[in-house]
Nucleic acid binder design. Structure first.
Lengths: 296, 296
DNA sequence: CTTCTGATG
DNA sequence: CATCGGAAG
Protein backbone atom coordinates (compact mmCIF):
# COMPACT_ATOMS: atom_id res chain seq x y z
CA UNK A 1 0.00 0.00 0.00
CA UNK A 2 1.13 3.47 -0.86
CA UNK A 3 0.77 6.40 1.54
CA UNK A 4 1.24 9.99 0.39
CA UNK A 5 1.53 13.30 2.18
CA UNK A 6 1.28 16.76 0.62
CA UNK A 7 1.13 20.26 2.00
CA UNK A 8 -1.05 21.76 -0.74
CA UNK A 9 -0.84 25.39 0.46
CA UNK A 10 -4.55 25.94 -0.11
CA UNK A 11 -6.42 23.04 -1.65
CA UNK A 12 -8.55 25.31 -3.82
CA UNK A 13 -5.50 27.01 -5.23
CA UNK A 14 -3.63 23.74 -5.73
CA UNK A 15 -6.64 22.19 -7.40
CA UNK A 16 -7.16 25.15 -9.71
CA UNK A 17 -3.65 24.87 -11.09
CA UNK A 18 -4.57 21.58 -12.67
CA UNK A 19 -7.81 22.84 -14.14
CA UNK A 20 -8.35 24.89 -17.30
CA UNK A 21 -10.80 27.21 -15.61
CA UNK A 22 -13.20 29.50 -17.42
CA UNK A 23 -12.13 32.34 -15.15
CA UNK A 24 -10.71 35.80 -15.80
CA UNK A 25 -7.21 34.46 -15.86
CA UNK A 26 -8.07 31.77 -18.35
CA UNK A 27 -9.60 34.38 -20.63
CA UNK A 28 -6.24 36.07 -20.95
CA UNK A 29 -4.07 33.02 -21.39
CA UNK A 30 -3.70 29.72 -23.08
CA UNK A 31 -4.54 27.01 -20.55
CA UNK A 32 -1.25 25.45 -19.61
CA UNK A 33 -1.12 22.16 -17.78
CA UNK A 34 0.55 22.08 -14.44
CA UNK A 35 0.02 18.98 -12.42
CA UNK A 36 -2.24 20.26 -9.67
CA UNK A 37 -4.20 18.26 -7.19
CA UNK A 38 -6.75 16.39 -9.25
CA UNK A 39 -4.37 14.90 -11.79
CA UNK A 40 -1.91 14.02 -9.07
CA UNK A 41 -4.53 12.25 -6.98
CA UNK A 42 -6.06 10.34 -9.85
CA UNK A 43 -2.66 9.03 -10.93
CA UNK A 44 -1.39 8.43 -7.42
CA UNK A 45 -2.42 4.79 -6.93
CA UNK A 46 -2.33 5.61 -3.23
CA UNK A 47 -4.26 3.91 -0.47
CA UNK A 48 -4.02 6.80 1.96
CA UNK A 49 -3.36 10.47 1.25
CA UNK A 50 -2.73 13.07 3.96
CA UNK A 51 -3.04 16.75 3.05
CA UNK A 52 -1.92 19.73 5.08
CA UNK A 53 -2.74 23.42 4.75
CA UNK A 54 -6.08 22.73 3.15
CA UNK A 55 -7.08 26.28 4.11
CA UNK A 56 -10.79 25.72 3.66
CA UNK A 57 -13.72 24.08 5.35
CA UNK A 58 -15.18 21.02 3.65
CA UNK A 59 -18.21 23.01 2.47
CA UNK A 60 -15.94 25.41 0.59
CA UNK A 61 -14.39 22.58 -1.38
CA UNK A 62 -17.36 21.36 -3.42
CA UNK A 63 -15.75 22.15 -6.74
CA UNK A 64 -12.39 20.60 -5.90
CA UNK A 65 -13.91 17.43 -4.52
CA UNK A 66 -16.28 16.85 -7.42
CA UNK A 67 -15.36 13.92 -9.61
CA UNK A 68 -12.38 12.76 -7.58
CA UNK A 69 -13.58 9.20 -7.65
CA UNK A 70 -14.22 6.95 -4.70
CA UNK A 71 -12.29 8.24 -1.75
CA UNK A 72 -13.21 8.27 1.88
CA UNK A 73 -12.53 11.74 3.12
CA UNK A 74 -12.01 13.14 6.58
CA UNK A 75 -11.36 16.80 7.37
CA UNK A 76 -10.17 18.77 10.32
CA UNK A 77 -10.35 22.53 9.75
CA UNK A 78 -9.01 25.37 11.88
CA UNK A 79 -11.40 27.71 13.63
CA UNK A 80 -9.91 30.67 11.80
CA UNK A 81 -11.07 30.80 8.17
CA UNK A 82 -8.48 30.15 5.49
CA UNK A 83 -5.90 28.93 7.95
CA UNK A 84 -4.20 25.55 8.35
CA UNK A 85 -6.45 22.48 8.17
CA UNK A 86 -5.74 18.83 7.32
CA UNK A 87 -7.55 16.22 5.25
CA UNK A 88 -7.18 12.47 4.94
CA UNK A 89 -8.30 10.61 1.82
CA UNK A 90 -8.34 6.84 1.76
CA UNK A 91 -9.47 4.07 -0.52
CA UNK A 92 -11.03 2.17 2.35
CA UNK A 93 -12.89 3.70 5.22
CA UNK A 94 -10.78 3.91 8.38
CA UNK A 95 -12.19 1.96 11.31
CA UNK A 96 -11.57 5.00 13.50
CA UNK A 97 -10.60 8.62 12.99
CA UNK A 98 -9.45 10.88 15.78
CA UNK A 99 -8.79 14.59 15.42
CA UNK A 100 -8.41 15.80 18.98
CA UNK A 101 -5.15 16.10 20.84
CA UNK A 102 -7.15 16.81 23.97
CA UNK A 103 -6.21 20.46 24.14
CA UNK A 104 -8.19 23.29 22.57
CA UNK A 105 -5.15 25.36 21.61
CA UNK A 106 -4.07 22.48 19.35
CA UNK A 107 -7.47 21.33 18.20
CA UNK A 108 -8.53 24.84 17.14
CA UNK A 109 -5.91 24.85 14.42
CA UNK A 110 -6.86 21.74 12.46
CA UNK A 111 -3.46 20.13 12.48
CA UNK A 112 -3.97 16.50 13.44
CA UNK A 113 -5.72 13.35 12.29
CA UNK A 114 -5.18 9.79 13.40
CA UNK A 115 -6.84 6.99 11.47
CA UNK A 116 -6.83 3.27 12.00
CA UNK A 117 -6.79 0.78 9.14
CA UNK A 118 -6.83 -2.62 10.77
CA UNK A 119 -3.90 -2.67 13.11
CA UNK A 120 -2.11 0.15 11.26
CA UNK A 121 -2.28 3.66 12.70
CA UNK A 122 -1.82 6.55 10.29
CA UNK A 123 -1.20 10.06 11.59
CA UNK A 124 -1.59 13.04 9.28
CA UNK A 125 -0.06 16.09 10.96
CA UNK A 126 0.64 19.68 10.12
CA UNK A 127 3.22 20.66 12.72
CA UNK A 128 3.13 24.40 13.48
CA UNK A 129 5.43 26.93 11.91
CA UNK A 130 7.58 28.47 14.64
CA UNK A 131 7.41 31.99 13.28
CA UNK A 132 5.23 34.35 15.21
CA UNK A 133 3.36 37.48 14.36
CA UNK A 134 6.43 39.66 14.07
CA UNK A 135 8.44 37.08 12.13
CA UNK A 136 10.19 36.19 15.36
CA UNK A 137 10.48 32.77 17.02
CA UNK A 138 7.53 33.34 19.32
CA UNK A 139 5.59 30.32 18.11
CA UNK A 140 8.45 27.89 18.69
CA UNK A 141 7.21 26.94 22.19
CA UNK A 142 3.76 26.16 20.78
CA UNK A 143 5.38 24.15 18.00
CA UNK A 144 7.47 22.11 20.45
CA UNK A 145 4.47 21.50 22.70
CA UNK A 146 2.58 20.22 19.68
CA UNK A 147 5.42 17.85 18.77
CA UNK A 148 5.53 16.58 22.35
CA UNK A 149 1.79 16.09 22.53
CA UNK A 150 1.78 13.98 19.37
CA UNK A 151 4.81 12.05 20.58
CA UNK A 152 3.23 11.29 23.93
CA UNK A 153 -0.06 10.32 22.38
CA UNK A 154 1.59 7.65 20.25
CA UNK A 155 4.18 6.41 22.70
CA UNK A 156 2.15 3.65 24.32
CA UNK A 157 1.09 2.14 20.98
CA UNK A 158 4.59 2.42 19.59
CA UNK A 159 6.00 0.71 22.66
CA UNK A 160 3.40 -2.02 22.32
CA UNK A 161 4.65 -2.75 18.83
CA UNK A 162 1.80 -1.23 16.87
CA UNK A 163 2.78 -0.26 13.31
CA UNK A 164 2.36 3.50 13.03
CA UNK A 165 2.95 5.98 10.23
CA UNK A 166 3.32 9.69 11.03
CA UNK A 167 3.29 11.74 7.88
CA UNK A 168 3.01 15.43 7.22
CA UNK A 169 4.65 18.80 7.21
CA UNK A 170 7.01 18.78 10.19
CA UNK A 171 8.17 22.35 9.54
CA UNK A 172 11.65 21.31 10.69
CA UNK A 173 14.69 20.21 8.74
CA UNK A 174 16.35 17.47 10.77
CA UNK A 175 20.00 17.71 9.85
CA UNK A 176 22.30 19.92 7.81
CA UNK A 177 21.89 17.62 4.85
CA UNK A 178 18.17 18.33 4.91
CA UNK A 179 18.38 21.91 3.68
CA UNK A 180 20.42 23.66 1.03
CA UNK A 181 21.61 26.54 3.23
CA UNK A 182 22.10 25.19 6.77
CA UNK A 183 24.56 27.88 7.90
CA UNK A 184 22.24 30.69 6.86
CA UNK A 185 19.29 29.26 8.75
CA UNK A 186 20.53 28.31 12.19
CA UNK A 187 18.58 31.23 13.63
CA UNK A 188 15.44 30.70 11.58
CA UNK A 189 12.53 28.64 12.71
CA UNK A 190 12.73 25.23 11.12
CA UNK A 191 16.43 24.82 11.81
CA UNK A 192 17.05 26.14 15.30
CA UNK A 193 18.72 23.89 17.82
CA UNK A 194 15.62 23.31 19.95
CA UNK A 195 13.55 22.29 16.98
CA UNK A 196 16.23 19.93 15.66
CA UNK A 197 16.68 18.44 19.13
CA UNK A 198 13.00 17.63 19.34
CA UNK A 199 13.28 15.85 15.99
CA UNK A 200 16.37 14.03 17.29
CA UNK A 201 14.40 12.86 20.28
CA UNK A 202 11.80 11.22 18.02
CA UNK A 203 14.55 9.40 16.13
CA UNK A 204 16.33 8.36 19.32
CA UNK A 205 13.07 6.96 20.61
CA UNK A 206 12.80 4.71 17.60
CA UNK A 207 10.89 6.67 14.97
CA UNK A 208 12.33 6.01 11.52
CA UNK A 209 12.81 8.69 8.87
CA UNK A 210 11.76 6.48 5.99
CA UNK A 211 13.31 8.58 3.25
CA UNK A 212 16.77 8.22 4.80
CA UNK A 213 16.42 4.44 4.88
CA UNK A 214 16.84 4.51 1.12
CA UNK A 215 18.63 7.79 0.34
CA UNK A 216 21.59 9.01 2.40
CA UNK A 217 22.61 11.78 0.02
CA UNK A 218 22.03 15.54 -0.16
CA UNK A 219 19.87 17.75 -2.38
CA UNK A 220 16.55 16.12 -1.58
CA UNK A 221 14.00 18.69 -0.51
CA UNK A 222 10.25 18.96 -0.17
CA UNK A 223 9.75 22.71 0.19
CA UNK A 224 11.14 25.72 -1.65
CA UNK A 225 10.49 29.37 -0.88
CA UNK A 226 8.13 31.01 -3.33
CA UNK A 227 10.47 33.97 -3.53
CA UNK A 228 13.20 34.41 -6.09
CA UNK A 229 12.28 31.26 -8.00
CA UNK A 230 14.60 29.13 -5.89
CA UNK A 231 12.78 25.90 -6.70
CA UNK A 232 14.33 25.86 -10.16
CA UNK A 233 17.76 26.03 -8.51
CA UNK A 234 16.74 23.49 -5.87
CA UNK A 235 17.46 25.74 -2.91
CA UNK A 236 15.06 23.98 -0.58
CA UNK A 237 14.35 22.29 2.73
CA UNK A 238 13.28 18.75 3.54
CA UNK A 239 10.54 19.46 6.05
CA UNK A 240 7.90 16.94 4.96
CA UNK A 241 8.46 13.47 6.33
CA UNK A 242 6.97 10.04 6.66
CA UNK A 243 8.10 8.50 9.93
CA UNK A 244 7.27 4.94 10.92
CA UNK A 245 7.38 3.15 14.22
CA UNK A 246 9.79 0.21 14.65
CA UNK A 247 6.95 -2.26 14.24
CA UNK A 248 6.19 -0.86 10.77
CA UNK A 249 9.81 -1.01 9.62
CA UNK A 250 9.74 -4.60 8.34
CA UNK A 251 6.87 -3.69 6.03
CA UNK A 252 8.62 -0.68 4.46
CA UNK A 253 9.24 -1.20 0.74
CA UNK A 254 10.15 2.30 -0.45
CA UNK A 255 10.16 5.98 0.40
CA UNK A 256 10.19 8.85 -2.06
CA UNK A 257 9.85 12.54 -2.76
CA UNK A 258 7.76 13.61 -5.77
CA UNK A 259 9.73 16.71 -6.54
CA UNK A 260 8.24 17.28 -9.98
CA UNK A 261 4.69 17.54 -8.74
CA UNK A 262 3.67 21.21 -8.84
CA UNK A 263 0.78 23.21 -7.47
CA UNK A 264 2.17 24.09 -4.04
CA UNK A 265 5.38 25.37 -2.54
CA UNK A 266 5.75 21.85 -1.08
CA UNK A 267 5.91 18.67 -3.10
CA UNK A 268 4.40 15.35 -2.04
CA UNK A 269 6.29 12.68 -0.13
CA UNK A 270 5.35 9.06 0.39
CA UNK A 271 6.15 5.48 1.22
CA UNK A 272 5.09 2.01 0.21
CA UNK A 273 4.32 -0.57 2.84
CA UNK A 274 3.55 -4.20 2.36
CA UNK A 275 -0.21 -4.63 2.35
CA UNK A 276 0.03 -7.08 5.21
CA UNK A 277 0.89 -4.24 7.62
CA UNK A 278 -2.79 -3.68 8.31
CA UNK A 279 -3.28 -7.28 9.33
CA UNK A 280 -6.33 -7.30 7.13
CA UNK A 281 -4.91 -9.20 4.18
CA UNK A 282 -4.93 -12.98 3.80
CA UNK A 283 -1.51 -13.41 5.38
CA UNK A 284 -2.01 -12.26 8.93
CA UNK A 285 0.61 -11.67 11.56
CA UNK A 286 0.52 -11.68 15.29
CA UNK A 287 1.36 -8.01 15.86
CA UNK A 288 -0.82 -6.39 18.45
CA UNK A 289 -3.78 -4.42 17.19
CA UNK A 290 -4.11 -0.84 18.32
CA UNK A 291 -6.96 -0.12 20.63
CA UNK A 292 -7.68 3.56 20.37
CA UNK A 293 -10.64 3.31 22.66
CA UNK A 294 -8.31 2.56 25.56
CA UNK A 295 -5.70 5.16 24.97
CA UNK A 296 -7.01 8.19 23.12
CA UNK B 1 -6.00 72.28 -24.25
CA UNK B 2 -7.25 68.82 -23.45
CA UNK B 3 -8.28 67.79 -19.93
CA UNK B 4 -8.83 64.15 -19.01
CA UNK B 5 -10.28 62.38 -16.01
CA UNK B 6 -10.01 58.68 -15.20
CA UNK B 7 -10.92 56.57 -12.22
CA UNK B 8 -8.13 54.02 -12.56
CA UNK B 9 -9.32 51.66 -9.79
CA UNK B 10 -5.80 51.23 -8.43
CA UNK B 11 -3.07 52.94 -10.40
CA UNK B 12 -0.66 50.07 -9.91
CA UNK B 13 -3.15 47.58 -11.26
CA UNK B 14 -4.18 49.84 -14.13
CA UNK B 15 -0.57 50.48 -15.02
CA UNK B 16 0.36 46.79 -14.91
CA UNK B 17 -2.28 45.93 -17.49
CA UNK B 18 -0.35 47.89 -20.07
CA UNK B 19 2.95 46.28 -19.18
CA UNK B 20 4.27 42.87 -20.19
CA UNK B 21 5.46 42.04 -16.71
CA UNK B 22 7.86 39.25 -15.84
CA UNK B 23 5.51 38.09 -13.11
CA UNK B 24 3.91 34.76 -12.27
CA UNK B 25 0.94 35.54 -14.44
CA UNK B 26 3.11 36.45 -17.39
CA UNK B 27 4.96 33.17 -17.05
CA UNK B 28 1.75 31.30 -17.72
CA UNK B 29 0.43 33.39 -20.55
CA UNK B 30 1.29 35.17 -23.71
CA UNK B 31 1.51 38.87 -22.94
CA UNK B 32 -1.65 40.38 -24.32
CA UNK B 33 -1.89 44.09 -24.88
CA UNK B 34 -4.58 45.97 -23.12
CA UNK B 35 -4.27 49.69 -23.11
CA UNK B 36 -3.41 50.37 -19.49
CA UNK B 37 -2.27 53.59 -17.97
CA UNK B 38 1.13 54.23 -19.48
CA UNK B 39 0.16 53.82 -23.11
CA UNK B 40 -2.98 55.84 -22.56
CA UNK B 41 -1.12 58.70 -20.93
CA UNK B 42 1.67 58.82 -23.48
CA UNK B 43 -0.84 58.98 -26.32
CA UNK B 44 -3.23 61.31 -24.57
CA UNK B 45 -1.91 64.68 -25.77
CA UNK B 46 -3.52 66.07 -22.64
CA UNK B 47 -2.54 69.19 -20.75
CA UNK B 48 -4.13 68.13 -17.49
CA UNK B 49 -5.04 64.65 -16.28
CA UNK B 50 -7.05 63.94 -13.12
CA UNK B 51 -6.97 60.44 -11.67
CA UNK B 52 -9.23 59.00 -9.01
CA UNK B 53 -8.94 55.84 -6.91
CA UNK B 54 -5.17 55.82 -7.15
CA UNK B 55 -5.16 53.51 -4.11
CA UNK B 56 -1.52 54.08 -3.27
CA UNK B 57 0.76 56.66 -1.75
CA UNK B 58 3.22 58.35 -4.07
CA UNK B 59 6.12 56.34 -2.66
CA UNK B 60 4.39 53.09 -3.65
CA UNK B 61 4.16 54.21 -7.27
CA UNK B 62 7.83 54.35 -8.25
CA UNK B 63 7.51 51.69 -10.92
CA UNK B 64 4.35 53.16 -12.47
CA UNK B 65 5.72 56.67 -12.55
CA UNK B 66 9.06 55.75 -14.04
CA UNK B 67 9.51 56.87 -17.63
CA UNK B 68 6.19 58.66 -17.96
CA UNK B 69 7.89 61.69 -19.46
CA UNK B 70 7.66 65.25 -18.23
CA UNK B 71 4.58 65.62 -16.12
CA UNK B 72 4.05 67.69 -13.06
CA UNK B 73 2.43 65.47 -10.52
CA UNK B 74 0.43 66.19 -7.43
CA UNK B 75 -1.02 63.56 -5.12
CA UNK B 76 -3.54 63.46 -2.35
CA UNK B 77 -3.74 60.07 -0.67
CA UNK B 78 -6.20 58.77 1.90
CA UNK B 79 -5.08 58.02 5.43
CA UNK B 80 -6.20 54.45 5.08
CA UNK B 81 -3.78 52.40 2.93
CA UNK B 82 -5.01 51.21 -0.45
CA UNK B 83 -8.12 53.36 -0.32
CA UNK B 84 -9.29 56.21 -2.53
CA UNK B 85 -6.68 58.85 -3.43
CA UNK B 86 -6.44 61.35 -6.31
CA UNK B 87 -3.62 62.53 -8.53
CA UNK B 88 -3.25 65.40 -10.94
CA UNK B 89 -0.77 65.30 -13.81
CA UNK B 90 -0.12 68.40 -15.89
CA UNK B 91 2.24 69.50 -18.63
CA UNK B 92 2.84 72.81 -16.89
CA UNK B 93 3.20 73.30 -13.19
CA UNK B 94 0.06 74.70 -11.60
CA UNK B 95 0.52 78.07 -9.92
CA UNK B 96 -1.33 76.71 -6.91
CA UNK B 97 -2.59 73.36 -5.71
CA UNK B 98 -5.03 72.95 -2.87
CA UNK B 99 -6.09 69.63 -1.39
CA UNK B 100 -7.97 70.56 1.73
CA UNK B 101 -11.69 71.04 1.98
CA UNK B 102 -11.19 72.38 5.47
CA UNK B 103 -12.66 69.36 7.20
CA UNK B 104 -10.69 66.35 8.37
CA UNK B 105 -13.41 63.83 7.56
CA UNK B 106 -13.09 64.86 3.91
CA UNK B 107 -9.36 65.47 3.78
CA UNK B 108 -8.55 62.08 5.32
CA UNK B 109 -9.92 60.32 2.27
CA UNK B 110 -7.82 61.90 -0.48
CA UNK B 111 -10.69 62.92 -2.70
CA UNK B 112 -10.02 66.50 -3.74
CA UNK B 113 -7.50 68.63 -5.61
CA UNK B 114 -7.87 72.13 -6.93
CA UNK B 115 -5.18 73.52 -9.21
CA UNK B 116 -4.83 76.88 -10.85
CA UNK B 117 -3.39 77.34 -14.33
CA UNK B 118 -3.44 81.09 -14.96
CA UNK B 119 -7.00 82.14 -14.40
CA UNK B 120 -8.37 78.60 -14.97
CA UNK B 121 -9.30 76.53 -11.95
CA UNK B 122 -9.26 72.76 -12.33
CA UNK B 123 -10.86 70.54 -9.72
CA UNK B 124 -10.10 66.83 -9.65
CA UNK B 125 -12.59 65.11 -7.37
CA UNK B 126 -13.48 61.61 -6.32
CA UNK B 127 -16.95 62.01 -4.89
CA UNK B 128 -17.73 59.35 -2.28
CA UNK B 129 -19.63 56.18 -2.99
CA UNK B 130 -22.86 56.22 -0.98
CA UNK B 131 -22.72 52.57 0.00
CA UNK B 132 -21.81 51.89 3.59
CA UNK B 133 -20.25 48.99 5.38
CA UNK B 134 -23.28 46.75 5.13
CA UNK B 135 -23.97 47.59 1.50
CA UNK B 136 -26.66 49.97 2.70
CA UNK B 137 -27.05 53.69 1.97
CA UNK B 138 -25.32 54.77 5.16
CA UNK B 139 -22.62 56.79 3.39
CA UNK B 140 -25.10 58.87 1.37
CA UNK B 141 -25.14 61.71 3.93
CA UNK B 142 -21.34 61.90 3.83
CA UNK B 143 -21.46 61.86 0.04
CA UNK B 144 -23.98 64.69 -0.08
CA UNK B 145 -22.01 66.74 2.44
CA UNK B 146 -18.93 66.30 0.26
CA UNK B 147 -20.83 67.49 -2.82
CA UNK B 148 -22.07 70.50 -0.91
CA UNK B 149 -18.67 71.36 0.45
CA UNK B 150 -17.13 71.35 -3.02
CA UNK B 151 -20.06 73.33 -4.38
CA UNK B 152 -19.77 75.96 -1.68
CA UNK B 153 -16.03 76.22 -2.05
CA UNK B 154 -16.32 77.07 -5.74
CA UNK B 155 -19.42 79.21 -5.62
CA UNK B 156 -17.73 82.56 -5.12
CA UNK B 157 -15.28 82.06 -7.97
CA UNK B 158 -17.99 80.73 -10.25
CA UNK B 159 -20.18 83.75 -9.46
CA UNK B 160 -17.23 86.05 -10.15
CA UNK B 161 -16.95 84.61 -13.63
CA UNK B 162 -13.85 82.52 -13.14
CA UNK B 163 -13.55 79.64 -15.62
CA UNK B 164 -13.63 76.42 -13.63
CA UNK B 165 -13.50 72.76 -14.58
CA UNK B 166 -14.72 70.12 -12.14
CA UNK B 167 -13.81 66.66 -13.35
CA UNK B 168 -13.88 63.31 -11.71
CA UNK B 169 -15.89 60.36 -10.56
CA UNK B 170 -19.16 61.80 -9.29
CA UNK B 171 -20.53 58.38 -8.30
CA UNK B 172 -23.97 59.57 -9.39
CA UNK B 173 -25.83 59.10 -12.66
CA UNK B 174 -27.69 62.33 -13.29
CA UNK B 175 -30.73 61.30 -15.32
CA UNK B 176 -32.41 58.11 -16.53
CA UNK B 177 -30.54 58.41 -19.80
CA UNK B 178 -27.27 58.20 -17.88
CA UNK B 179 -27.55 54.55 -16.93
CA UNK B 180 -28.67 51.44 -18.74
CA UNK B 181 -31.03 50.18 -16.05
CA UNK B 182 -32.60 53.21 -14.35
CA UNK B 183 -35.69 51.39 -13.04
CA UNK B 184 -33.61 48.69 -11.38
CA UNK B 185 -31.43 51.20 -9.56
CA UNK B 186 -33.73 53.79 -8.03
CA UNK B 187 -32.93 52.36 -4.61
CA UNK B 188 -29.20 51.95 -5.16
CA UNK B 189 -26.65 54.55 -4.27
CA UNK B 190 -25.70 56.48 -7.38
CA UNK B 191 -29.27 56.84 -8.57
CA UNK B 192 -31.38 57.63 -5.53
CA UNK B 193 -33.53 60.75 -5.53
CA UNK B 194 -31.41 62.69 -3.05
CA UNK B 195 -28.23 62.08 -4.99
CA UNK B 196 -29.82 63.04 -8.30
CA UNK B 197 -31.32 66.16 -6.72
CA UNK B 198 -27.90 67.27 -5.54
CA UNK B 199 -26.63 66.84 -9.07
CA UNK B 200 -29.65 68.80 -10.35
CA UNK B 201 -28.80 71.60 -7.99
CA UNK B 202 -25.32 71.94 -9.51
CA UNK B 203 -26.84 72.14 -12.99
CA UNK B 204 -29.52 74.63 -11.92
CA UNK B 205 -26.81 76.78 -10.41
CA UNK B 206 -25.07 77.00 -13.75
CA UNK B 207 -22.63 74.09 -13.88
CA UNK B 208 -22.56 72.60 -17.37
CA UNK B 209 -22.41 68.85 -18.06
CA UNK B 210 -20.01 69.17 -20.98
CA UNK B 211 -20.72 65.76 -22.47
CA UNK B 212 -24.41 66.63 -22.91
CA UNK B 213 -23.53 69.82 -24.78
CA UNK B 214 -22.49 67.62 -27.68
CA UNK B 215 -24.35 64.32 -27.19
CA UNK B 216 -28.02 64.19 -26.19
CA UNK B 217 -28.45 60.48 -26.84
CA UNK B 218 -28.45 57.33 -24.69
CA UNK B 219 -25.98 54.47 -24.27
CA UNK B 220 -23.00 56.56 -23.25
CA UNK B 221 -21.48 55.27 -20.04
CA UNK B 222 -18.23 55.58 -18.15
CA UNK B 223 -18.47 52.72 -15.66
CA UNK B 224 -19.51 49.10 -15.91
CA UNK B 225 -19.76 46.57 -13.09
CA UNK B 226 -16.92 44.08 -13.06
CA UNK B 227 -19.42 41.30 -12.47
CA UNK B 228 -21.02 39.24 -15.22
CA UNK B 229 -18.99 40.87 -18.00
CA UNK B 230 -21.58 43.57 -18.57
CA UNK B 231 -19.12 45.97 -20.19
CA UNK B 232 -19.20 43.93 -23.41
CA UNK B 233 -22.99 44.39 -23.46
CA UNK B 234 -22.67 48.06 -22.48
CA UNK B 235 -24.80 47.79 -19.36
CA UNK B 236 -23.22 50.76 -17.62
CA UNK B 237 -23.58 54.06 -15.83
CA UNK B 238 -22.36 57.54 -16.73
CA UNK B 239 -20.92 58.61 -13.40
CA UNK B 240 -17.72 60.33 -14.52
CA UNK B 241 -18.21 63.90 -15.62
CA UNK B 242 -16.44 67.06 -16.62
CA UNK B 243 -18.48 70.06 -15.51
CA UNK B 244 -17.56 73.61 -16.38
CA UNK B 245 -18.62 76.91 -14.95
CA UNK B 246 -20.53 79.35 -17.19
CA UNK B 247 -17.39 81.42 -17.70
CA UNK B 248 -15.63 78.41 -19.21
CA UNK B 249 -18.48 77.56 -21.57
CA UNK B 250 -17.35 79.84 -24.45
CA UNK B 251 -14.00 78.05 -24.51
CA UNK B 252 -15.48 74.54 -24.74
CA UNK B 253 -14.54 72.81 -28.01
CA UNK B 254 -15.47 69.20 -27.37
CA UNK B 255 -16.36 66.65 -24.73
CA UNK B 256 -15.90 62.90 -25.00
CA UNK B 257 -15.89 59.49 -23.38
CA UNK B 258 -13.01 57.13 -24.20
CA UNK B 259 -14.98 53.95 -23.88
CA UNK B 260 -12.41 51.71 -25.51
CA UNK B 261 -9.68 52.51 -23.03
CA UNK B 262 -9.27 49.53 -20.72
CA UNK B 263 -7.47 48.90 -17.47
CA UNK B 264 -10.15 49.94 -15.01
CA UNK B 265 -13.86 49.43 -14.49
CA UNK B 266 -14.21 53.11 -15.44
CA UNK B 267 -13.10 54.61 -18.75
CA UNK B 268 -11.62 58.08 -19.16
CA UNK B 269 -13.66 61.17 -19.95
CA UNK B 270 -12.43 64.54 -21.16
CA UNK B 271 -12.92 67.88 -22.81
CA UNK B 272 -11.05 70.27 -25.03
CA UNK B 273 -10.94 73.93 -24.17
CA UNK B 274 -9.50 76.74 -26.20
CA UNK B 275 -6.00 77.44 -24.93
CA UNK B 276 -6.93 81.03 -24.25
CA UNK B 277 -9.05 79.94 -21.27
CA UNK B 278 -6.03 80.19 -18.98
CA UNK B 279 -5.42 83.79 -19.97
CA UNK B 280 -1.78 82.87 -20.37
CA UNK B 281 -1.63 82.63 -24.15
CA UNK B 282 -0.82 85.54 -26.44
CA UNK B 283 -4.46 86.52 -26.88
CA UNK B 284 -5.49 87.58 -23.43
CA UNK B 285 -9.01 88.29 -22.21
CA UNK B 286 -10.35 90.40 -19.44
CA UNK B 287 -11.94 87.59 -17.41
CA UNK B 288 -11.20 87.86 -13.72
CA UNK B 289 -8.34 85.81 -12.38
CA UNK B 290 -9.03 83.51 -9.49
CA UNK B 291 -7.42 84.49 -6.24
CA UNK B 292 -7.24 81.36 -4.14
CA UNK B 293 -5.34 83.15 -1.43
CA UNK B 294 -8.42 85.16 -0.61
CA UNK B 295 -11.00 82.47 -0.68
CA UNK B 296 -9.62 79.06 0.08
C1' DC C 1 -15.82 40.50 -10.06
C1' DT C 2 -11.64 43.14 -8.76
C1' DT C 3 -8.67 46.06 -6.06
C1' DC C 4 -6.42 46.65 -2.19
C1' DT C 5 -4.39 45.12 3.17
C1' DG C 6 -2.83 42.19 6.58
C1' DA C 7 -1.81 37.79 8.52
C1' DT C 8 0.51 33.77 7.58
C1' DG C 9 3.58 30.67 5.59
C1' DC D 1 6.35 35.27 -3.38
C1' DA D 2 1.68 33.33 -2.71
C1' DT D 3 -2.45 32.02 -0.13
C1' DC D 4 -6.69 33.43 1.97
C1' DG D 5 -9.97 36.62 4.21
C1' DG D 6 -12.21 41.15 4.55
C1' DA D 7 -13.31 45.85 3.20
C1' DA D 8 -14.61 48.41 -0.40
C1' DG D 9 -16.29 49.60 -4.85
Amino acid sequence: MKLLSWNVNGLRSCWSKGEARADPVAKRQEPERVTGFKTWLSRSRASVVGLQEVRAREDQLDECLKGLGRWHRAFSAATRPGYSGVALFSRTKPEEVLTSLGEASFDDEGRFQLARFGRLLVVNAYFPNGNGKDRDLSRVPYKLAFYQRVFDLLEHEKARGVPIVVMGDFNTAHREIDLARPKDNVKNSGFTTVEREEFDRWIRQGWIDTFRVFEPGPDHYTWWSQRFGVRARNIGWRIDYVLVSPAARPFLRSAFIQRNVEGSDHCPVGIELDDSVTGMSTTSTSSPRADLGDRL
